[in-house]
Amino acid sequence: MTPPDRALRVVPERAETPPRPAPSGPPILEARRLGRAFKVRGGLLHALSNVTLSCAPGTSLGIVGESGCGKTTLNRLLLALDRPTSGEVMFRGKPLSDMSRAEMRVYRRAVQPVFQNPYSSLSPRMKVRRIIAEPLSASREMSRAGVRDRVIEVLEQVGLSADVADRLPSEFSGGQRQRIAIARALASRPELLLLDEPVSSQDISIQAQILNILKDLQEDYGLATLFVSHDLATVRFMCDEVVVIYLGRVVERGPAARICTTPDHPYTAALLAAALPADPAAPATDTPPMGELPSPLSPPSGCAYHTRCPFAQEICKQERPVLKETPRGEVACHRVSAEGWS
């Protein structure tokens, strides 16, 4: 076997995005030891276990992992579209479960979702103007003229012109619909956008346009984002920090640039190897992904990744590694310590 520390150093670092201003203030939204188990035929399916994370003002957090690892489950819990079976979601330091109706209204305006599929997320019979104004209707303090101006303003922020407002979503292409969905999310002046695979169903040229719009929103308006994706390259572009999830558990966390160049966890290394670069001269990886995701209904013992891990040892089958802090972030692997690989 290759010495692991060499094996995991995948590619050299290149030109870097200048660091964004440090996050300011207490977190907007937090997940504390969040868990969600579904009752299904054949038992309990632990879709999410013990996930702790926080979204601070002006930061951008990426959530990555394979299909079925629990990304959408997490997103739905954070949006209060579903309730956790353990742990808490906290908004401005207070558990959602303890909040009054008035507080929930504030939360609903401050935290806005954008989903993957702009076909199903926009009502087909409503004009764009009404779709966008809908999140504003809850607030009585806004005049009709104020709402009208706000609609135009957010349309411009996503690169659409004002005349779009009087048309139906069906008149637009997928990329334009996703812009409309983003404009809708922006209408209530949120502090945090929760984006669940917002570009996965789009063409390449349209993906780049939408990613740039989201980046503008992050940088120009200091909007915090949580970006759920199965694509590490997109996450590298969009996010400061990345959380990697495997079978519902956090296995690694760290700065996006570090995660995408020198991952600590073997699963992160496999995800990175699978993100094929558009470069036929790219060197072959030492850590190719192997095997398939085991059934979440009966996850492997010990480290759930041991069935696919090229570095697994006896202990990996018996003991679940805890998420430890290292100078590089956090990692749950028996073979990684604060000093590095062993």
Binding site: V11, S205, Q209
Partner: peptide, 24 residues
């Protein structure tokens, strides 16, 4: 050229992606 340039990469993060305006 434009399409290749607009693809995000795990190896570096430009401030903005070079985009092709409009749609096919």
């Amino acid at each position: 050229r434009a399409l290749l340039a607009s693809v995000p990469s795990t190896r570096h993060a430009p401030r903005r992606l070079p985009v092709i305006e409009g749609q096919p």
